[in-house]
């Protein structure tokens, strides 16, 4: 199951990278065959470590939350982050008050925590420095709350409920 999924994924990646569909038919068969060979090789080497619970790949509601809800929210947050950083940089007095705070997450899976850390890095004014089990250490460019509960509420809650739906 795992190996099959990894094969499909690496094949899709290969097809997108080489794009053999320029003429109508025949497609560029050589390119596709090389892709099959390389995907098989990758599958043989890394198949065991691919996914913790492969059944999650077959639940369509996860894709719904990922594509229709997470991606628009994330894009909006990214643009907000950029305007925020640009404002702080151009402002003559530089309104920053940096510090490292500690927050707690309820996510269990490794991929969920990874995506949470990446999302936090791309949202306004926060950057994940380290992760130890369920605690994340976050550099905040303007610290609004030093204690754990309030920092968690302000930083993590924006994405956590969504990532629980997608990855848990």
């Amino acid at each position: 199951m795992r190996r099959f999924l990894l094969f499909i994924d690496s094949m899709i990646l290969w097809l997108l990278l080489t794009w053999p569909f320029n003429q109508l038919w025949p497609y560029n068969i050589q390119s596709i065959l090389v892709g099959v060979a390389i995907s098989l090789l990758v599958t043989l080497i890394f198949g065991k470590r691919f996914s913790q619970r492969p059944i999650k790949w077959f639940e369509p509601q996860r894709y719904f939350w990922l594509i229709l809800v997470y991606m628009p929210i994330f894009t909006l947050q990214c643009i907000k982050a950029n305007v925020d950083v640009a404002y702080r940089v151009i402002h003559p007095k530089m309104p920053i008050k940096p510090g490292i705070v500690k927050v707690k997450t309820r996510l269990k899976s490794k991929i969920g925590r990874t995506v949470l850390a990446n999302s936090i890095t791309m949202t306004p004014g926060t950057l994940t420095v380290d992760i130890q089990d369920e605690y994340l250490y976050i550099h905040w460019i303007k610290v609004y709350a030093e204690d754990e509960e309030n920092a968690t509420r302000l930083i993590v809650k924006k994405f956590e409920w969504l990532l629980i739906k997608i990855f848990e």
């Binding site: 990214c78 643009i79 982050a81 950029n82 950083v85 640009a86 702080r88 940089v89 151009i90 530089m94 920053i96 940096p98 490292i100 890095t121 791309m122 004014g125 950057l127 420095v129 550099h139 460019i141």
Partner: peptide, 28 residues
Amino acid sequence: FDFFGSFGLIRLPDVYNRLQAATKGVTV
């Protein structure tokens, strides 16, 4: 956005703040 990111890289005080500007500005 790339320009503001690079500008922040020069102007902000320490390595962590500079990483913020570099990551966000330059990525987007």
